[in-house]
Design a protein around this nucleic acid. Structure first.
Lengths: 225, 225
DNA sequence: GTTTGTAACGAACACTGTTCGTAACATACA
DNA sequence: TGTATGTTACGAACAGTGTTCGTTACAAAC
């Protein structure tokens, strides 16, 4: 759809059409989902497309650019919410939950593209939606804007944390609990006493709690300071 | 101090003593502080110690183990607070602020060791202290335990965010603002309308706000659910 | 003085991202 | 039909990376 709509030159049509940015990102996402971000090397992506690594650089600026493009595609799949002042809190939970799930489904992408300021329209669309939900609560703009940032941190953190437990959800918790129990109680009285609470709850429950805490906190008047 | 106190064999003393885990971590931290985590390669660390990369593997399990050891040393420098129920909130801000500053001083370490569950006694000591401050507020143990996790996420996020602005604090903000202003107002009404609020505040101010939000939120009764 | 065990070296392996000179190819023009 | 053209893809090469391991050197113990 590019060659016909943009006739910048008389000889615009490519000779062959097996390679394209779309195809490269598709192949990269497939590897990402199955084997994680570390496995997404330029050579591996190229091999999946039956070509050499160097050929990718025509359509992708490099590994970093490819990662950003992958992140963009992942975010694009997330269904947004049309802010409703009567149920904005539930909508917030839904949206952030879907975001977290999408990140978990692509291991490593959360840690890699966590803090880059949003640039693409897709990511900005997500921010726009998040901001809309927060403002629907009646929050003042400044608090809503900062709350969006705080929630983004929680989503990323929860996603990375969930990735760790992806292989075996309970095994890690058991191991951590055992580690806590083994500690000398005289030097770590609180950790040993509350080991159960520290590892309590599943990923979902903890995430719900975190989002609620942030919402409740940002709704509360800034009392102590 | 190791060779004399632990005579596990009759021939215990090493032939030479230029290399040690301590020396390796020291050299790695120096590179980390000046050039960031990506620059901390096994070869570069070895070169700083006038040896080959392979020689490091006697004292360090590998790159990952070295990073953990570096993280441990960084955390070890953080001064803890003895919980005081009359000023726990200020103590919390102090402790988390120092933690964030220490992470920012070592670019990349926050993103790398963010979510690994705490294992070493040093890191657990920090958790113990954090838990102590939260419990000093009168929080029930379960909420305090989960709050510790939420705050850890905020610290890591703030540290990574601060690293980005390390080179030029205002340049990035200006660039992001310009990006927001350039957006089509019809599709991004909220972002364009509140672009100022989105980038408002320095790193410190935003961090203080985030910590206060979490504290206020976890103190609030779980109203809506 | 010889034996012994540990510590250090450094070459080698299998990778990584990236660059770039070269070759192929269907298209446009003569 | 033949030549020129500009895009496209290839694949070798470069400078790195983490890690392994056979070999060597050295100071202490017998």
């Amino acid at each position: 759809m590019d060659s016909s709509s943009r006739p910048r030159s008389t000889r615009d049509r490519p000779a062959k059409a097996p390679l394209s940015a779309e195809a490269i990102i598709d192949a990269a996402l497939a590897i990402l989902k199955s084997d994680g971000l570390d496995a997404v090397s330029m050579r591996r992506v190229a091999a999946a497309l039956d070509t050499g690594a160097g050929s990718l650089y025509v359509y992708v600026t490099g590994r970093e650019g490819l990662q950003e493009a992958m992140f963009d595609r992942i975010i694009a799949t997330i269904e947004l919410e049309t802010p409703d002042p009567s149920r904005w809190r539930a909508q917030l939970h839904s949206l952030l939950g879907r975001l977290r799930d999408a990140l978990v489904a692509h291991p490593g992408i959360a840690a890699a593209t966590m803090v880059d300021p949003p640039r693409t329209e897709v990511v900005l669309g997500l921010l726009e939606n998040l901001l809309g939900l927060l403002l629907a609560s009646g929050l003042e703009p400044q608090r809503a804007a900062w709350a969006a940032d705080i929630l983004a941190a929680q989503v990323s953190y929860a996603a990375i944390e969930a990735e760790l437990r992806r292989t075996d959800p309970t095994a890690l918790a058991a191991q951590v609990t055992a580690n806590f129990a083994r500690l000398p109680a005289d030097r770590f009285p609180l950790i040993t006493a509350h080991a159960e609470q520290l590892v309590a709850g599943g990923v979902d429950e903890r995430f719900r709690f975190a989002v609620d805490v942030v919402i409740d906190g940002v709704l509360a008047t800034t009392s102590a300071r």
